[in-house]
């Protein structure tokens, strides 16, 4: 009886740690899931001003089309460098159905522009040197990608560099 009790303790601890070793660290539930996306207004980086105006207000686009919100910074190496071409390719394929918006987080303007140049990013990019929007979205660290559906609700948050397959699957979800 006593032996059984001790054995149970060992088994429970073992199970707990085994589970802990095998959980996916990229999967972080956001408190925002299912809630309306927080609004923000940011100045756009110079290359996008002609097409999108001086400032970008999320509320102007919420509830019209699905939105992919990507937080990045030029100092986030290598993750942001890995996902930038993936995001650009997806933007080119989906630009008529989904709005992509990049939030440049706690970065220097010149460094951000160099990054944009390097990957030829054509979706609009806002500039947030303080990282205020990141906190409003409960961001852990760059890069993070939020998927907002047609109704303006947050559907999914991806932490870390996003890959093409996940991006495609989640885009299909918000387009449904």
């Amino acid at each position: 009886m006593r032996r059984l009790f001790y054995l149970l303790i060992v088994a429970v601890l073992g199970g707990l740690f085994w589970w802990g070793l095998h959980r996916n660290p990229g999967e972080l539930k956001s408190v925002l899931i299912g809630r309306p996306a927080p609004d923000f207004e940011l100045p756009l980086l110079p290359p996008y001003r002609q097409a999108w105006g001086e400032r970008f207000r999320l509320a102007d686009h919420l509830g019209k089309t699905p939105i992919v919100l990507n937080f990045w910074a030029s100092w986030c190496y290598p993750a942001c460098y890995q996902e930038a071409p993936v995001l650009q390719a997806a933007w080119e394929a989906y630009r008529d159905r989904v709005l992509f918006f990049g939030v440049n987080n706690q970065d220097k303007t010149e460094a951000a522009l160099k990054f944009i140049d390097r990957f030829g990013l054509t979706f609009p990019q806002g500039y947030d040197p303080r990282g205020k929007v990141g906190i409003d979205y409960g961001m852990y660290g760059v890069p993070e990608t939020f998927f907002i559906d047609r109704k303006g609700k947050v559907r999914y948050r991806h932490a870390g560099a996003i890959d093409a397959a996940t991006l495609k699957a989640k885009l299909a979800e918000v387009l449904r």
């Binding site: 987080n105 706690q106 303080r130 990282g131 205020k132 990141g134 906190i135 961001m139 660290g141």
Partner: peptide, 10 residues
């Protein structure tokens, strides 16, 4: 970290 500095500022 940058976020912590921003949190303190806020």
């Amino acid at each position: 970290a940058g976020v912590s500095q921003e949190m303190r500022r806020q």
